[in-house]
Design a protein around this nucleic acid. Sequence first.
DNA 1: CACGAGTGGTTGACACGTCAACCATTACCT
DNA 2: AGGTAATGGTTGACGTGTCAACCACTCGTG
Lengths: 154, 154
Amino acid sequence: MNATPRWLTPEQQAAWDGFIRMQEKLIGRLSRRVQADSRMSPADYIVLAKLTEAGGRMRFMDLTKLVEWEKSRMSHQVARMAKRGLVDKEDCPDDGRGAFIIATPAGREAIEEAAPVHVEHVRRLFIDALTQEELDTLARISNRVLAHLEKQPD
Amino acid sequence: MNATPRWLTPEQQAAWDGFIRMQEKLIGRLSRRVQADSRMSPADYIVLAKLTEAGGRMRFMDLTKLVEWEKSRMSHQVARMAKRGLVDKEDCPDDGRGAFIIATPAGREAIEEAAPVHVEHVRRLFIDALTQEELDTLARISNRVLAHLEKQPD
DNA sequence: CACGAGTGGTTGACACGTCAACCATTACCT
DNA sequence: AGGTAATGGTTGACGTGTCAACCACTCGTG
C-alpha cells in the first residue's frame, strides 16, 4: 500500500505507552479529585486562577491567549461559569465588540478555597512520586517536546 | 481556615507546569491530526487496535478491562462505533447478560489504514523530539508515577 | 428452591471540547 | 469616504467522558 511504515522500536513503544498510560491516569484522577473536593472542574480552576492572578478583570481575548485556548472553548466555558455565578461579563466601552470577564466575589471565594486542595492533590499524586532530580529531568524533557512542537506547523 | 497550605517550590511548579503544558499540546495535536488524516478518533483507534490484536472478537468486559476504561465509557463508545459500522455486537450464548464485540471488515480496514498514520504522527510529534536516552528516562519516570498512583486508593 | 448479592451491560442527563459558520465592529488601504 | 480584511466574540451541532441509576441475568448460600 505504501513504503514500509517504520514501526516504533520496542524501547520507543515502551516510552510512548508508559507516558500515555501515566498521563491518562494522572490527569483523570486529578480532575476527579479536584472536582469532588471543590465542586470545580480543572477548567474552572485554571480560568479563575489566571483571572484572579491578573486582578480579577480581563479582556476576553487576553484571558483566552493567556491560557492558550481556542476562543470558542473559552466562550463556552465562560458562559457556563457565568451561569454558575463564578464570573460576570461586561461590555467594553472602548471596543464595541469586546468584553471584560470579571471574577465575582463567589468566584474569588471558590478559587481561594480550591487552590490549596488543588496543590495538595498535585503534590500527593505527582510530586511525591518523584525526586527533585526526576522532576527537573521531566521539566527538561517537557520543554524539549514543547519546543519541538512549536517548530512544527499547527 | 486550615494549616499552612504548603505551596509548591518554584522547581516543583516548573516541573508540573511544563508537564501539563506539554501533555495538553501533545495530546491535543496528536488527536487532531489522527482524526484529520484517518477519520478516526484516538478512542476509536485504541479500541479497534486492541480488539483486532485479540483476534477481532472479544467479550465486552474483557475489552473494557484491557483498555482500562469504565464500562459506561466503553458502552457509549461501542454504540457510536457500531453506528458507524466499525464494530458489531452479538449476544453471548453462554451468559445471557453478556455481549461479544466484533470488528467488522470495515473496522479492520479502517485500523489497518490508520495504524501507520498514527505511528507516523507519534514519531514526528514526540519520538523525534527526544533522544533514546531521554525516552528511556521518561519511561522510567512514567512508571514511577504509575506505580505511585496504584498504591493510592481510587 | 428461594433470595440476596454480585456481575454484565445500558441508559440518560450533563459537562466539556472542537469545528465551522456567523455577526458586529474596527482597522486598513486607496 | 468606502470597501475589504481582520479582530472579538457567540452559537449550534456533534463527539466524547462521567456519574448515577437501572435492568437482566447468574451465582452463592441457607
